[in-house]
Amino acid sequence: MTTVAPPYPYLNTNTELINAHKLEKHFEGGYFAQTVLLESSLPSASVSASASASKTESAHVPKSAALGGREQVASGPGAELLQGASSDSVSGSGSASDATSSDKKTDATQIYYLLTPDSYRGRMHMNLHSTFHIHHAGRALYTLIRPPSPSSGESTPSIHRVIVGPNVTQGEVTQLFVPGGWWKASEIPEEDLLLLDAPDAEKAGLKERIGCLISEVVVPGWNPDQHQFIDEDKLKAMWGGNPGWEQYKKYITAPEGLEYPDK
């Protein structure tokens, strides 16, 4: 019997990825870890002009007019790679403690996100902020729903199905941009999961080498206020009471036998 093989190169097992990146179960399904939190603020008025200048200005790094005087500070494991764990700035800027919490803005967040056969589908949700998806390993099918826009005369939503994966010659993409205000759900493709039913799949350790690891960057940064899950009422409303929404009902709850943590 020919040994069954993964449908794509998968350098590390799912267990290795979870351990190496310290991934935890995500309330949407799958696993995640936030790696970068990028915040910006205006220098505090309580800091003297001379102290502020000596702390933030550098003859080697010009100021960006696009930031409007705001200074960015990054934290998290992804930032520590270059800054070190004890550093509190991205490029010599002031620390987050120099600004009041009301002045502080989250400019971007970055996470790892992993789907595995044990958690192979994410619940459909909407981010009001734009999201960038960058492929690392495996592949996932994304179902994207753009709600109808009355101003453009649309009466039904626009549906897009995209595979994030390594085989660009077959139409897979290694980058996926999803605008804010779209519904989104990702899952391991059914044809990949069916390989787990092969007689020698367990012997080949296939369950550890089927999945999808990506990075997600949300701009402005993710927060609970700009995130929502879909439900049956929201699905039906997009079709205006007409049929067509039923096939997406499976994305409302966790697949049978799986549970997701609370949000």
Rank of each mutant, 00 (worst) to 15 (best):
H60V: 01
L67Y: 12
S54R: 15
P62C: 04
S64Q: 11
S75R: 14
P77Q: 04
E57R: 14
A66M: 10
D98V: 13
S86D: 14
S93D: 00
A85P: 06
L82M: 09
S87N: 12
S97A: 14
T56D: 14
A66L: 11
T100W: 00
L81R: 09
E57S: 07
A85R: 14
G92P: 02
D98Q: 10
A65Y: 04
L81V: 14
S75I: 12
S54H: 10
S101K: 13
T56W: 04
R70W: 10
A74Y: 00
G76C: 06
G76M: 08
S64L: 14
A65L: 12
S58D: 00
S54E: 13
E57W: 04
S91R: 06
S97V: 15
A85M: 13
A65R: 10
G92S: 01
A79C: 10
S86C: 10
S75H: 06
S86E: 14
V61H: 02
E80G: 13
V61I: 15
V73K: 04
T100E: 01
E57Q: 05
G92K: 05
L67H: 09
S93H: 08
G78C: 01
S75N: 11
T56A: 00
S86W: 13
L82C: 10
S75M: 08
S93L: 03
P62L: 06
G84I: 11
R70M: 11
S101C: 09
E71H: 00
G69L: 07
S93Y: 07
G84N: 08
K63A: 12
T100Y: 02
H60P: 00
D98M: 14
A74H: 03
V61Q: 02
A96F: 03
G69S: 09
E57H: 13
S95L: 02
K55A: 13
V61W: 02
G84K: 08
G84P: 07
V61C: 04
G68D: 09
Q83A: 08
G76R: 11
G78E: 00
L81S: 08
A65C: 01
G76N: 05
V90G: 03
Q72K: 06
S89W: 00
S86T: 13
S87P: 05
E71F: 05
T100M: 07
T56Q: 03
K63S: 13
S102E: 15
G92D: 03
E71I: 01
K63I: 05
S101F: 14
S54M: 10
K55M: 04
S54P: 03
T56P: 03
G78M: 01
V90M: 03
H60S: 07
T56M: 12
V73R: 07
G69H: 12
A74Q: 02
L67V: 05
S58N: 04
D98N: 11
A59F: 00
A74F: 02
S75A: 07
